[in-house]
Design a protein around this nucleic acid. Structure first.
Lengths: 274, 274
DNA sequence: GGTGCCATTGAATCTCTAT
DNA sequence: TATAGAGATTCAATGGCAC
């Protein structure tokens, strides 16, 4: 199977497997945007207790987030990001999300590979987890880096006016305020436990996609987890290819995707006149 | 002159010169905290010097030149940060402030040198400069990284309760809201032009110092510009050593420092009983 | 149905000391 | 060096349940 056939067969689907390997089957320059939510390499040796002595059900013990060293994490980053870069159009953009555990290393690699940073955006959490021990500041934000593949291309997609409209008529800023993903949106298993420890809120990903893609664009999601980005793409009329190495997450993502509302283009009669 | 004599002679003074060279005259482990506001990779205020004092060619546009520039900036960062690390106590902390132009590279070097990140803090600007061309989001924040020299040392200074009090009784978060440095505080020359392009607001530096030092502590400021950190140190009763390579900035900083209000320890009779 | 109280929980590099 | 026990310590949002 050639690379264009592979793309066709994976279009709007979630594929189980290692994105670094799978991306090698896809053709150069096929994607308009990539949304990347890689493992953060959190390095949590011990469980954390709340003041009432209950255990925080967090990232501790997640094998997929454990790397042998900083160097190993860097090599992993170079491997996946090199493929993502190859798959993007020259005026395509990449979004990467992370915290201080990984974002500085990821951002450095991104610059070294030739990406040109357009903004860094901070997702300010309206309801972050406190620092229970009083040893640091409440860790209240995550960072997203937005960059274009080729510095010389000024024709990357940025829906300035739509962003301005969303922001009440004022230019959209780089600080975005959303709560954590909880409630009905959170994917659950076994009755009442969260399926994925780090599911992102749909509203966050929605703003990313609205800002930097147009209807019909093709989006790459190499670490799609339980499928937040594919679901938002489907709702907003963007095509996508999603990869997820964990078979359980991938299947949950497919089920979620099947239930997601599909985008409806406005009918001819309802369109605004030109 | 030995290193302890050098420290004594520079105490609470602003020294004109290259911090990478000057720091070599100071003794190991003398400082409790370092506040570092290094030049950004882009729009450098002066020709970028490699650690070996050769000038980096400022030509723009060529890929090899961009890479050489990034690499030179990394070398510069390693050079100054290695010295800062040597001068810190093992439980001392470093603060570095930057934007997306440099903070990812600086943060990566910081981790590689063995610093252990405690938080990244975002300074959200309440009055940022808009993006006039409408090609990106308004760049509304800068990033500060706070890290301890030795990961194993848990006894770094963090004035948790004071921060909580400042924040209205709730745990201080990592998102801080301050306006840009303007008005009376902004150092001006020639009647009405800004003396320094990136003068930081005193309130921002004040929170940094209140959070991570105690009265009488010794603070290192290797890039002190027009002297915001020294002024705040003086007002809050912290000692400091400040370096600035630009003689004009350094002199403006000294004049500003001379006018700054000195910290007054509460008199014996006014102190709270133990 | 609405309101109020209580329990639960979240990408977290979260202590100190004795054995 | 690793483990166990004592001890100090949390904010906003959601959901269930009583009234």
């Amino acid at each position: 199977m050639n690379s264009k056939a592979a793309l066709q067969s994976w279009l709007n689907r979630i594929i189980t497997g290692d994105c670094i390997e799978l991306m090698q089957h896809l053709p150069d320059g096929a994607f308009d945007m990539a949304f990347c939510d890689p493992p953060y390499n959190l390095q949590l040796p011990r469980p954390l207790l709340r003041p009432n002595r209950t255990v925080v059900d967090g990232m501790q013990g997640q094998a997929w987030d454990e790397f042998a060293s900083l160097q190993a994490y860097d090599e992993f980053t170079v491997a996946w990001m090199t493929q993502v870069r190859r798959l993007l159009k020259d005026n395509g953009t990449i979004w990467v999300i992370g915290t201080y555990h990984n974002i500085y290393r990821v951002g450095k690699v991104l610059m070294d590979l030739g990406f040109w940073i357009l903004n860094d955006v901070v997702w300010i959490k309206t309801n972050p987890m406190p620092n229970f021990r009083g040893t640091r500041f409440t860790n209240a934000q995550e960072t997203l880096i937005w960059a274009v593949k080729d510095r010389r291309r000024k024709d990357y997609t940025f829906n300035y006016w739509q962003m301005k409209q969303i922001n009440g008529g004022k230019q959209m800023r780089s600080d975005w305020y959303f709560p954590l993903c909880r409630g009905q949106e959170r994917v659950m298993v076994d009755g009442g436990t969260k399926a994925h420890p780090t599911q992102k809120p749909e509203r966050l990903v929605e703003r990313v996609i609205l800002a930097s893609t147009n209807e019909g664009d093709l989006v790459l999601d190499p670490f799609c987890g339980v499928g937040t980005c594919p679901v938002v793409c489907r709702r907003l009329g963007r095509s996508f290819v999603g990869f997820e190495i964990d078979a359980v997450y991938a299947e949950l993502a497919r089920e979620r995707l099947a239930k997601a509302r599909q985008h409806q283009a406005p009918s001819e009669g309802l369109r605004a006149s030109p």
